[in-house]
């Protein structure tokens, strides 16, 4: 299923391949594994439907039920990679606990770039460089989350990742490039249960 138009960069393709192993097949064992991601995707989709439509009469609700069912059936293996309900919920709980720390980091680093942007002698302060390092993270989702977190904390932009976790990061000065991978990688590893 969902073979449609995957013309995205390499990391999305590899994520897609990873999901194919878990995608629903015919025998009943796998059908049970398919059930929980389907229900969770359906609940999220229906919540967004109600949010966007804002109408509560039976006609619109039934339209929403039908279309959410179709979408959840077609793409339930994209949003939740682990098919077991217990691991799934614990995974999302850990991920939600990662977000506040990320917000604090984003605000701290944003203030740093704001200071740089208004500094009258900015050209002497910045010292752009490319930092390369090897990450210990394994799963594709953890790598993507790590790359997006690096990009969101200003002062650093992920330029390139290879499949086995080779990072190339553009840092605006020495102070923001040095702490990588460091604390953030440990937090992401904890959030995705890789130690």
């Amino acid at each position: 299923m969902d073979k449609q138009g995957q013309e995205n960069p390499d990391r999305e393709r590899s994520l897609h391949n990873d999901n194919e192993d878990l995608s629903p097949a015919v025998d009943p064992q796998d059908r049970k594994l398919f059930f929980y991601p389907f229900v969770l995707t359906f609940i999220i989709m229906f919540g967004i439907w109600i949010l966007l439509s804002g109408k509560f009469d039976p006609f619109h609700l039934s339209l929403g039920l039908i279309s959410c069912g179709i979408v959840a059936y077609l793409s339930s293996d994209l949003l939740f990679s682990s098919p077991r309900i217990k691991g799934l919920l614990a995974q999302w709980a850990r991920f939600i606990r990662y977000i506040p720390w990320l917000m604090v980091e984003i605000i701290k680093a944003n203030l740093h770039v704001l200071y740089l942007a208004f500094h009258p002698r900015m050209m002497e302060l910045i010292d752009p460089r490319i930092v390369k390092f090897q990450s210990k993270l394994k799963s594709d989702l953890a790598l993507v989350t790590f790359a997006n977190s690096i990009t969101l904390t200003p002062g650093t932009i992920t330029v390139d990742i290879s499949v086995d976790g080779n990072f190339k990061v553009h840092a605006i000065d020495k102070a923001s490039g040095d702490p990588l991978p460091g604390e953030m990688e440990r937090r992401v590893a904890k959030a995705f249960g890789e130690n």
């Binding site: 984003i106 752009p128 904390t153």
Partner: peptide, 21 residues
Amino acid sequence: GILRFPDFYSRLHPAGKLDTL
């Protein structure tokens, strides 16, 4: 920052993320 930074890569730092916050 978009106006003042010296090249394309360093311009992305303020553009992509100060705008997001």
